[in-house]
Amino acid sequence: MKRGYFRRCAMAGLGALAIVIPATGPAAAADAPEWTVDPKASFIKFTGRQMNVPSDGTFRKFTARIRFDPANLAGSSVDVTIDTASAHTGNKDMDATLESEMFFEVKRHPTARFTAASFRAKGGNKFEAVAKLTIRGISQDLVLPFTLDIAEQGGQFVAKVSGKVDVSRTKFGIGRGDWSNTGVIADKVVIDINVVARRQK
């Protein structure tokens, strides 16, 4: 008897919440329109340093689900899945080392993921994404500042996104054993993102 009473109260409470949240909370925003990434015009570049020598590379394969509207940041979200085996530096030895268990360990962690569900307008074409980056199964919060320029081209919108952020490789366990030595291999890796995406008007 007593149990039934509590359950009724709980149900009523949940019901009330269900009415209140959509009316006032952030989930109220309708989803922003979805964009299709142009993979040929887009790249994710990374630059690391050893002995202060910069070496860069790109992830050649990634998929992105982007919902974004500068006028509806609350309904915007980004979810990028990166194929870790697609890291390409133009140096076979380096590529093999990045694939190995010392770095990305692509056999166990074939993908890295970047998700952002919260955005801040910083004036003009500048924005910030409050994001979560997961590499090797380790998640880190980061803030990605980026610029966004939307133009109309042949009946569709074309968006250019460009952003740059520093990450600490050791926080993701990138570079194990000897390779964790940040005196030779810098902890800081610069990630450079350039994405071109389109959507129908």
């Binding site: 002995m51 202060n52 020598v53 910069p54 070496s55 590379g57 530096t89 133009g90 140096n91």
Partner: peptide, 22 residues
């Protein structure tokens, strides 16, 4: 060309103008 450009004494970057080419 091997994506490991010269940084003289770890201080002065002197990349070659020919870029990467394995």
């Amino acid at each position: 060309m091997k994506n490991l450009p010269l940084v003289y004494l770890g201080v002065i970057p002197i990349p070659s103008p020919f870029g990467k080419n394995e």
